[in-house]
Every structure is written in C-alpha cells, then in structure tokens.
C-alpha cells in the first residue's frame, strides 16, 4: 500500500556559497518534510550559520536553489517570510520597549489579525505573561530567550529557524526550553530547523540530524543512524571524532 509522504517544507538543491574564494557552503542538497525537527550539527566553521542565513535570504547564494513551502526564495521572499520565522540567542530586541510593545510591533509587521489574543496566548504559553509590561532590558537571559521565541511564534510559522536557542541558558532553563520546543512542535505542527552545540539537546529533540563539515553534508539521518554511521554511542563522541580527526570517515 502506498504511504502518504508529508509535503516538503524545505528543498535545497546544489546550494553553494563562496566568500572571496572560500567556500562556506559547498554544493549542499537536502529536504525537510513538514513537521520534522531537523538539527544542524557541525564544528565551528562547518557552515551552519551561513546555511541558516542563506535559507532566510540574509545572504545571497553563489549557486543553487532554495524552495521553502513550495516557493522559490528568490522570487517570493516576502511571501515566504510571512510564513516562516527565526530566533537566535545572538539577536536581541529593542530593550527600551516592553515585552508587549515589542511583540505588538512584530505582530503588525507579520500582519497578525487577532494579534492581542495571539500575544496573550504566547506570553502565557512561555510563562512570561506577568512580565508583559516590563521593559525588555530588565529581563534575564532565559526570559529574553522566551521573548525571542514568542516573537518567532507570532505568525504561527510553518517553518521555524532557531540558531542556538539555548546557548545562553542555564541547564534548568535549557531543559525547559527543549520541552517547550517539543510542545510547540506538537501543538502548532511547526517544522523546526535549528543549530546547537548542545549534543544532548540535539539527540533528545531531533527527528533527524544533518551533520555538516567544511561546508558539506557529512551524514544525514536519525540520531540513531548518525551514531550507527560513526560507530559511537553519543553525538558528543561523534562531534569530537569529526572535529579532531577530520571527517573521520
């Protein structure tokens, strides 16, 4: 019997990006199905951040194509961006605005109709509703991460890019954020593509891992398949093996 395959949220074909002769992303092709959580893993300089920026249209590709939700990123960037979102621990929001004001501005940028309800819902979900009138500059790093996630969920994105979402969090808050991400995926059926240096986190929440090394995909598969490929018992060992010993193939 023929099984229904989920539609593709992302289709990357022969994507290459070079900066002054240095190839940061080298002829990469992969797909991500709707509803998948895909972790991008790799040592520093592997091309993870460049790849996410390419997928968000913040960098122009040297060659190759990117299709998001069936649309060409080059031709339909604005339409695509209204259906995707992004959160990073390295990006902030205006600190002189309250949480509510920041989310209000972004809700309007994303054209959210019932934005007040949506903001209230997300602030409650992320357990920061009591802070809605606080200035953003008074938030802790954990609260800032939650605000950034609230911004990223405002438009109920079909595809969410997360760049090291737990980088600045303590273990307790990082654990809560992971639980939250899974809950968000289950509740909103969002496709997640994210980077992290936290191997445990990757292993715990990813349906699939794409391991990048020197701008190329070294291996792609479920966490178990990646472990099996490298004959290791943890992603951390895989990471160290690759980072210290070339591609360890």
């Amino acid at each position: 019997m023929k099984q229904d395959t989920p539609p593709l949220a992302l289709e990357v074909t022969h994507l290459t990006k070079s900066f002054n002769g240095v190839t940061a992303v080298n002829d990469i092709s992969f797909t991500v199905s709707e509803g998948e959580i895909v972790g991008l893993l790799g040592p520093n300089g592997a091309g993870k951040t460049t790849l996410i920026q390419l997928l968000l249209g913040l960098i122009t590709e040297t060659s190759g194509t990117i299709h998001i939700l069936g649309m060409d990123l080059k031709k339909d960037r604005s339409k695509i961006l209204s259906q995707v979102n992004f959160s990073s621990s390295y990006v902030s929001m205006p600190t002189s605005l309250t949480l509510w004001e920041n989310l209000n501005v972004f809700a309007k940028l994303y054209g959210i109709r019932d934005y007040k309800d949506q903001i209230n819902r997300l602030l409650t979900l992320l357990e920061i509703h009591s802070l809605k009138d606080s200035l953003t500059r008074h938030l802790s790093s954990g609260q800032l991460t939650r605000l950034s996630l609230a911004k990223a969920l405002l438009n109920t994105p079909r595809l969410l890019f997360l760049d090291e979402p737990t980088a600045s969090l303590d273990p307790d808050m990082a654990d809560k954020t992971r639980t939250l991400l899974k809950a968000i995926r289950d509740q909103y059926k969002i496709t997640l593509l994210y980077t992290s240096h936290n191997m445990k986190e990757m292993q715990e929440i990813s349906d699939r891992i794409i391991f990048l090394y020197q701008g190329k995909i070294l291996v792609s598969g479920t966490p178990a398949a990646v472990l099996d490929h490298f004959k290791e018992n943890s992603l951390e060992s895989v990471f160290l093996k690759v980072a210290r010993g070339g591609n360890a193939e």
């Binding site: 968000l56 913040l58 604005s78 961006l81 209204s82 992004f86 990073s88 990006v91 994303y110 054209g111």
Partner: peptide, 8 residues
C-alpha cells in the same frame, strides 16, 4: 536581523 527576516 529580526526586521530583515520579517516580511518588511
């Protein structure tokens, strides 16, 4: 970056 990845 938040602005440049929005539909703005």
């Amino acid at each position: 970056l938040n602005l440049f990845v929005s539909p703005l």
